[in-house]
Design a protein around this nucleic acid. Structure first.
Lengths: 127, 127
DNA sequence: TAGCGTAATATACTAAAATGAATAACGCAA
DNA sequence: TTGCGTTATTCATTTTAGTATATTACGCTA
């Protein structure tokens, strides 16, 4: 994802410090990078089926991710409907959008954090 | 307002922000929480076999973790010997110790980071 | 030389996670 | 009423990570 060429900004040096963040609920993780990207695809396509295809994961996988998320959150992050004019669909709720926005914000902060700490890591490996 | 609880120290509130860090090399991850704990057990016991038992992982798993680490690092983090008075053994090199110390330092910083960011997460879920 | 406790390695098995395919329910429209 | 595209759900299969077990090499000691 952070794969840059020769521009000089985000070099892909190795070794490199990496990091992840996610949010745990009482029944396990309910929000992380994968789910957030999935939410954005659902927003884009209005459909779990199409979002799953775009991300090259199975419908079932997408559904499980969404279900485990929706069931741990006070108010659902996506709402679904089956049947109707276009067969049904799925949309992201305002609560979901807030969560997505917050996740990206923290994610961004984490990248800053890692960038800082990475200096110490790199100093381990060059003289 | 933030939720108030009855005990005082490390509350296990949910939802809770979590995070991990690790170091990637050209052939994948070579240092993370698991390997660092393993290094510490090797230091403690002087043996991969015993360290693996203490961590309740298979010898093979421990060996693979160590090997993938050692082979991506300029100078090995552990050195092994087979045969001899006590059958052989494994010890952590100064380079390994430095890496362990640095990892824990960054890990600690990450905990501080998460603690700060977690406030924003929590505010998503209480009124 | 035989015995020991270890590292190193190969192979077969196990368990968990994800996939793929099939099916039913849904609700609108023609 | 039939067709359509979606969600929801089940089940068999595949993939993958890890375990369990066995074997060999090693080097010291008795």
């Amino acid at each position: 994802m952070t794969k840059k060429k020769k521009s000089g900004k985000t070099e892909n040096l190795v070794p490199a410090l990496r990091g992840h963040i996610w949010i745990d609920g009482s029944k396990g993780t309910f929000l992380g990078y994968g789910r957030v990207v999935l939410l954005e695809r659902i927003r884009e396509y209005g459909s779990i089926t199409k979002a799953a295809k775009a991300l090259e994961i199975s419908y079932r996988r997408a559904w499980v991710l969404i279900d485990s998320m929706n069931r741990q959150v006070p108010r659902p992050y996506v709402v679904t409907s089956a049947g109707g004019r276009r067969g049904g669909g799925t949309s992201v709720t305002p609560e979901g959008e807030r969560a997505v926005a917050l996740f990206w914000k923290i994610h961004e902060n984490l990248q800053q954090f890692i960038k800082k700490q990475d200096a110490a890591v790199r100093s381990l490996y060059d003289e």
